[in-house]
């Protein structure tokens, strides 16, 4: 999988590149709009990560020109602007997704994988992490074969964690997926629900699946992985 990162801030493109390379992607980086457009037209990329504010050629202009010749390549926009009009203009211009700065790399990765259609999309009805099982059809949770009663919110939280097994999910990402943005940054609601979920899922067992990653968020991972 080959990804093009068009970002004028070298430090941003640098850590994005390093992070994506670590995930075994081939990553090209360029620092201005015109060059980015030329590269996008020259090579068959699987994904383009495009900053909105670029020197020489604006990000939205680059996007429009890419879309004239290539309608398939997914484009993820990075932006420091997040008004409703900006977002609408981006989607109208043909963007597939966007991320507002400052973003967590974990979120960029989740969205990248989703756009590359090999990420969190697990359509089988049951998901397992270690000996923890979640059945999407019956909405039942079992650990070591024993049924665990969870509330609707706890179920959504667990489902989201398990979809992204082994990946750190920031509180922000969890809030956006399980609640909505009105809870953003105000409450410790995620921590409270994670605590409740742990009490049901992890406390009776010696192997703890739900992990806290300080400063980043939460992650679910089976033993030894």
């Amino acid at each position: 999988m080959r990804i093009l990162v068009v970002e004028d801030e070298p430090k941003v493109s640098s850590f994005v590149q390093r992070g994506l390379v670590a995930e075994r992607y081939a990553v090209d980086v360029c620092g201005d709009g015109r060059e980015g457009l030329e590269m996008a037209q020259a090579f068959p990329y699987d994904l383009i990560i495009l900053d909105l504010m670029l020197p020489r050629l604006d990000g939205s202009e680059v996007l429009q020109r890419i879309r004239r010749t290539n309608t398939c390549v997914p484009v993820l926009m990075l932006t420091a602007r997040d008004t409703v009009e900006d977002k609408v203009r981006m989607f109208e211009g043909g963007a597939d997704d966007y991320l507002t700065k400052p973003f967590a790399f974990a979120e960029l990765l989740v969205r990248t994988k989703a756009l590359l259609r090999r990420g969190p999309v697990n359509r089988s009805s049951t998901m397992t992490v270690g000996n923890l099982e979640l059945d999407r059809l019956t909405q039942q949770v079992k650990r070591a074969g024993k049924r665990i009663e969870v509330t609707a919110k706890e179920y959504s939280l667990l489902e989201y964690l398990m979809q992204n097994e082994g990946r750190v999910l920031s509180r922000n990402m969890i809030i956006e997926h399980v609640w909505d943005q009105s809870f953003d940054g105000i409450t410790n609601i995620v921590d409270v629900y994670v605590r409740h979920l742990r009490a049901k899922v992890d406390d009776p067992h010696t192997v703890k699946l739900i992990r806290t990653v300080r400063g980043s968020g939460y992650m679910i991972r089976g033993e030894g992985e």
């Binding site: 801030e9 430090k11 941003v12 850590f15 992070g19 973003f103 790399f105 980043s216």
Partner: peptide
């Protein structure tokens, strides 16, 4: 963004 990315 840079600070967060580097630290992560």
């Amino acid at each position: 963004t840079i600070m967060r990315g580097e630290l992560e």
